[in-house]
Each structure stands twice: as structure tokens, then as C-alpha cells.
Amino acid sequence: MDNSRTIPNTAQDPDNTLNNSTGSAVSKLPSTSIKQRLMSWEFFLLLITAAVCVANSFASPYFLDPWNLSDATFNFVEKAIVALPLALLIICREIDLSVASIIALASVAMGYAAQWGADNTTLLIIGISVGICCGLFNGLLVTHFAIPSIVITIGTMSLFRGLSYILLGDQVLKDYPAGFDYFGQGYVYWVFSVEFTLFLALAVVFYLLLHHTNFGRRTYAIGKNPTGAFYSGINVKRHRLLLFILVGAFAGLAAVLLTSRLGSTRPTIALGWELSIITMVVLGGVNIMGGSGSIHGVFIAVFLMGFVTFGLGLLNVPGIVMSIIVGAMLIAVIACPVLLARYLQRPR
């Protein structure tokens, strides 16, 4: 892909900006050679993921078991579903730290609705609607008052979580109707859970959205050069607002899945998830400063994270050691290409 990070040359492609914003430029770019493709970030991630899989199946006889792998996906799929739209938002030079708190607030709303007798479809709509409202709130604050999104969403992170605590206190909501567990515990076919299948489908949708539509090209254009994008006729504010709403809606969807999986709601639900979700996006090669990244990169990173933690879990590695390993992996994976690029570009 034209927009993915390539190892020898990480960020210096200034002519891409204009080409992308005009929308028809992708085909005009020189076609990527096989060598370039092999040097891409996504290929690098894929290699590491494969290595992790091989290491895991050597380390534990329980790793290569379809049901075990299926069970393992439950640990990360809800986070991954939020990571997809968040990747777009980060490419667009914004961020949303309030996603986990949106999940909590949406879950509390669903819990009360269920107590008042709402059926499954209504609960699904309520969860996503609350997410959309929260996303709209974030987006309006960021775009209308031109305050950096990191500041706004640190605030709403506490705000949404605080609201959940005020509404629910130390209580629990668990009067979910029969059949509600299908979203988070059901299976579509064999080992493919509803959650996982949904994630696969959404990943395809987001791939097409980011890499094959004008909407996606505008996202890159704004991320690379917001002023340039503005002067080439892109409604930057509206685009960012839409992305915030999209992230909110998907946090709402994740709330439906997680609540259904747990079968209950407490205000602490999904506590601390925002960092794991952002980690997935960054590991996937999305530049935290905006402008570059790909959905297939995030897609592979989701599995890399999932397999590493599941593999370590099978070896009963304590969680504290696990977070150290994941942290070290993140730094190594981000640092390696940079160091390699420097090595390749050194004066001879």
C-alpha cells in the first residue's frame, strides 16, 4: 500500500499528500515492487506474528487447538473492534482516550434499560446510541472549541466513568433478557464466535473504507497536512466530527458485546482498556502523529498482541511479567525499523 510505512523510508513522502487529497492519485503512483512490499511494516508484523505462533506451539501443547484459539479471541476482540475506527481517528491527527469510559456508560444505560424491560434489539440500539452521543460530545468539543483532543478526551474519560459510578454506585445490573448472551457468547459456525465473525467482517469494511474510498483518502490528507487539506476543499471539522462519532458508535458496540459476555454491568467495566486499544493501533504501524498507517497493519497487530498474551497465559506467566513483555515488545517492534532504516541510510 502506498500509505503503509516502509522500513527504509519512514516518513519522507511529501508528494503523497497532494496526490491523496485529489483522490485519483493512487493509480498514478509507481506500483510497489515486490522488494518494497517485503520491506513493509505489515510484512514485518506478519513475520513476528508467525514467529510468536511457532514459539507458542512449541512452548505449550495447548496452543494449536481450534477451541483454545477461539476462546483466546474473546480476550481481545471487543478491544480490536474499537481499534478499527480509532486507527482512522489517529491517522487523522486526533485521539480518543475516553473509549473505555464510553463502554462503561453505554453498558450502564443498557443495564437500566434491561431492568425496565427492553428487548435485545432495543438494547443493541441503546448501546450504540449512547456511544454515538458520547462520540458526538467529544467531537463537538474538539472541533468547535479547537481544543486538542487529548485534553478533551482525558476530561471525558473521567466524566463518562464518573457518570457510570454516580448512576450505579456499588450496585450491579444483571436483568438482561434471555438470548442477550448471544452477542458475546454465541457462535455463528463451529469455533467462529459472533464477536470474532463480526470483527472479521468489520475489518474488511474498514479496509475498504480507509484504502479504497474518498473518505479514506481525505483521512490521510488531513492527517498529513490539515491546512493543505482544508485549502483543497475538504471539510476538516466535519470529517473529524464524523470520525469521533464513528469511534463512539463502535465503543457502544463493544459495550454491547462485553456486557453480553459478562452478563452483568458494574461501573468498573472495561477499566483501563483505552491503553490496550491504543497499543493495538500503534503496534499496527499507525503513526501516533497522524498521516500514515493501515487497517491490515492494525489487523495483524491485534492478533500479535492476542497470541503473545494468550501464549504467556498458557505458560502461567504472572500478569505483571506479561505487561513488561508486552511493553518491551512494543518498544522493540517500533524501534527496530527505525534503527534498521538508520543503518541502511548510513553514509558509506
Partner: peptide
């Protein structure tokens, strides 16, 4: 005895740990 648990006292963390115990049969 496999002594295990999450890093913070969350239900989600415990579920992840229980998932890997189920996988280990």
C-alpha cells in the same frame, strides 16, 4: 497448584486468566 491472577482486581482480567486455565485443561 497453579497460582495465578490478574495484575489489577478486575473481572475482565480474571476472565482472561480463567480462559487460559480452561485451555490448559
Amino acid at each position: 497448584v497453579i497460582y495465578t491472577g490478574p495484575t489489577s482486581t478486575t473481572a475482565e482480567g480474571q476472565i482472561e486468566v480463567i480462559n487460559s486455565l480452561i485451555a490448559q485443561k
